[in-house]
Design a protein around this nucleic acid. Structure first.
Length: 504
RNA sequence: GCCCCUGUCGUCUAGCCCGGCCUAGGACAUCGCCCUUUCAAGGCGGCAACACGGGUUCGAAUCCCGUCGGGGGCGCCA
C-alpha cells in the first residue's frame, strides 16, 4: 500500500515527556493516543525526552519512563534508546541545534537579545496583573541593535533571546479535536526562546525538534493550547510548515481537580504494581475522552488501533473512575489463560509469604486451580493474597461477625454437632463424603439449604462468606497435602478445632 | 483580573457538525429480582441527564446570543 512516493507524507507523531519521575496516567493517555494514531495510519511514533530542565531531570527517570511505556505495550520507532534518522532524541543533546537556529533568527532580525533582569520582569508582570491586563513583555530590548547587544554580551552581561512577534493580528489554527482556535497577538508578547543560561525555552525547543523531526501531528494535553500560538509564530519565523494540532482534554479526579495522588494511584507504575493489566489500563485510558462507534467496551490494543478515531475524541475533561478501570481489569483478567493467571499471581503470593520462591511443579498445578477459582471477582492481582487467606488462615478464635451470627442458632449447633459425629472417625475426607454426610443430616434433622450449609461453611472456614463449598473442599484437601511455608489445615482437622473451640 | 477551552444520567459517554428517527441510547456504579450451597460472577429489570435564560424555527439536546458553572493558560517550568 505504501509506496516510495507516499513515504514522504508518512504520518509522524511523538510523545515528548520530561523525565521528572514516574509517568502519570494523563501522560500515558497522551502517549497512547499518539501511538494509536501512528499505528492505525501506518505512521511513525517517536519518543523524545525533554530534559532541558536540569533541576528536575534525572537519568534514572528516563529508564522508568521507557520501562513504563514498554509495559503498556507502546513501542516507538525512533527514540533515545534506539536512535533514528532525526536524532538525537534527548533535548539535552540537541543544544547545538537550538543555538544554531537561534543564531539564524538573530541574524535575520527576527529575534533579539533581552537584558532585562528577572526581578524587573517580575515587577512588570505583577503590575500588569494588578491592573487586570495580560502580562505581556514590554518590548524594552526589542530595538537594541544586534551589534550593541553582542558587545554587551561579550562584556559578560547575561542575556536571554526573545522572538520578535508582530504587534497586531491574530494567530489561528485548526485543532483536530477543538476546531478553530484563535488568539490575539496583543496578548502574546515576545517570548523568550533561549534563556540567559543558554538553555532553550520549552516553546522554542519543541518547535525546533518537531520541525526537524518532521512531526506531522502534535497530539498533546490541553494545557498546551495557549502555547500553540507562540509555537506557530516560531514556525512562521522559520518559514516552516506547521504541524496539525490536536489538544486532548485533561484527566481529573473525582473532585474535578487535576488527577493527583490525593485521588489514589496516578502513575502507570503504581497500577502495574497493583496488578492492573497493561491492556486493561490502555483500554480504560482510551475511554477517557474517546468512545468506539458501536459502544464496544472490552477491547485489546489491536482492536483499539482499528477503532480509534481522533475525530471522535471529546473536548471536555474526563474524571478518572477507578471503579470502571477495575471492572475493565476484571474483564481482561477473565480472558487470560490459567497459566497466565498463575504467572501474574505468583509474585503477589510470594510477597505475601504464602509460596516460597521457586514453587514446585506440584504446587504450581494446585496454585493454578486455586488462582483460577479465587481470582473471580477480584479487581486487581494485589487483592489475591487476601483471598488466599481462606485457604491459609483458619482460626476459630477469630470468627468474623457474620460467622458468629450464623452459628448462634440452635439449629446451626445441631448441624455442626451432627456433622462432627459423622466425621469423627474418618481418616479421609473429600467432597463426595461431604455430600453424603450433608444428605444424611438433611434426612435426619430436616435442616436444609442455607441453614444447613452456612453453619458448615463457618466450621470449615471460620468465616461467614467465601467460596462455594463444592469448590472449596476439593481445593483445600488437595492443598493440605502440599508443603507450603504456611501449612494448609485440612477439613477434618478444622472441624475438630472448631468443635473444641465451640465446646460442643 | 485577562485570554483560551468546555458544559447530556453520580461517572465515562452516544446523539450535536447535516434540526424532526430522542417518550435522549450504552457502559460503570447503585437498587431490586432471578439463578445459586453465602458472597461473587452471570441473567433480567428499576432509578437517573440535555446547566440556566432568551431567541431562530411548524419543530432544538442539536443553530444563534447571553448568564452561570468547570478546566487550562497567563514563567529565563515542561
Amino acid at each position: 500500500m505504501n509506496n516510495q512516493a507516499s513515504e514522504k507524507e508518512k504520518i509522524r507523531v511523538r510523545f515528548a515527556p520530561s523525565p521528572t519521575g514516574y509517568i502519570h496516567v494523563g501522560n500515558a493517555r497522551t502517549a497512547l493516543f499518539n501511538w494509536l494514531f501512528a499505528r492505525q495510519n501506518n505512521g511513525i511514533f517517536v519518543l523524545r525526552v525533554e530534559d532541558t530542565d536540569l533541576e528536575r531531570s534525572r537519568e534514572e527517570y528516563e529508564r522508568n519512563l521507557i520501562q513504563d511505556l514498554r509495559w503498556l505495550g507502546l513501542d516507538w520507532d525512533e527514540g533515545p534508546d534506539i536512535g533514528g534518522p532525526y536524532g538525537p532524541y534527548r533535548q539535552s543533546e540537541r543544544l547545538e541545534l537550538y543555538h544554531k537556529y537561534a543564531h539564524q533568527l538573530l541574524q535575520e532580525g527576527k529575534a533579539y537579545y533581552c537584558f532585562c533582569s528577572q526581578e524587573e520582569l517580575e515587577r512588570e508582570r505583577e503590575a500588569a496583573l494588578a491592573e487586570g491586563r495580560m502580562p505581556v513583555y514590554s518590548g524594552k530590548c526589542r530595538n537594541i541593535p544586534l551589534k550593541d547587544a553582542e558587545k554587551r554580551r561579550s562584556c559578560g552581561e547575561p542575556a536571554a533571546i526573545r522572538l520578535k512577534v508582530p504587534e497586531e493580528g491574530i494567530v489561528a489554527f485548526y485543532d483536530l479535536v477543538r476546531g478553530h482556535v484563535e488568539f490575539d497577538l496583543k496578548i502574546i508578547g515576545d517570548p523568550i526562546i533561549v534563556r540567559s543560561n543558554g538553555m532553550p525555552a520549552y516553546n522554542y525547543a519543541v518547535v525546533i525538534d518537531d520541525a526537524l523531526m518532521h512531526i506531522t501531528h502534535v497530539i498533546r494535553g490541553e494545557d498546551h493550547v495557549s502555547n500553540t500560538p507562540r509555537q506557530i509564530l516560531l514556525y512562521q519565523a522559520f518559514g516552516w510548515p506547521t504541524p496539525i494540532f490536536a489538544h486532548l482534554s485533561m484527566v481529573m479526579g473525582k473532585d474535578n481537580t487535576r488527577l493527583s495522588k490525593r485521588h489514589g494511584a496516578t502513575s502507570v507504575d503504581q497500577f502495574r504494581r497493583e496488578g492492573i493489566l497493561a491492556e486493561a489500563l490502555c483500554n480504560y485510558l482510551s475511554f477517557l475522552g474517546w468512545s468506539p462507534p458501536e459502544g464496544q467496551e472490552v477491547l485489546t490494543l489491536q482492536q483499539l488501533v482499528k477503532l480509534f478515531d481522533l475525530n471522535r475524541v471529546s473536548r471536555s475533561a474526563a474524571i478518572f473512575d477507578y471503579e470502571k478501570l477495575h471492572w475493565l481489569n476484571r474483564q481482561h483478567i477473565k480472558k487470560l489463560s490459567p497459566e497466565e493467571k498463575l504467572n501474574l499471581a505468583l509474585p503477589y503470593l510470594e510477597e505475601a509469604g504464602l509460596v516460597s520462591s521457586p514453587a514446585t511443579e506440584e504446587q504450581k498445578t494446585w496454585l493454578k486451580k486455586a488462582v483460577e477459582i479465587l481470582l473471580e471477582g477480584v479487581d486487581k492481582f494485589s487483592e489475591l493474597p487476601k483471598k488466599f487467606e481462606l485457604l491459609f488462615d483458619f482460626n476459630p478464635e477469630n470468627l468474623d461477625q457474620e460467622a458468629k451470627e450464623i452459628i448462634a442458632s440452635s439449629s446451626a449447633r445441631l448441624v455442626i454437632k451432627t456433622f462432627y459425629q459423622k466425621i469423627a472417625n474418618l481418616s479421609e475426607f473429600n467432597y463426595e463424603t461431604f455430600a453424603r454426610i450433608t444428605g444424611e443430616i438433611k434426612k435426619e434433622t430436616g435442616i436444609k439449604g442455607r441453614d444447613l450449609y452456612h453453619p458448615l461453611r463457618v466450621v470449615l472456614t471460620a468465616r461467614g462468606s467465601g467460596l462455594e463449598l463444592d469448590k472449596f473442599i476439593p481445593l483445600l484437601e488437595e492443598g493440605a497435602r502440599l508443603q507450603f511455608p504456611r501449612r494448609i489445615i485440612g477439613c477434618l482437622e478444622r472441624v475438630k478445632m472448631m468443635v473444641s473451640f465451640l465446646n460442643l
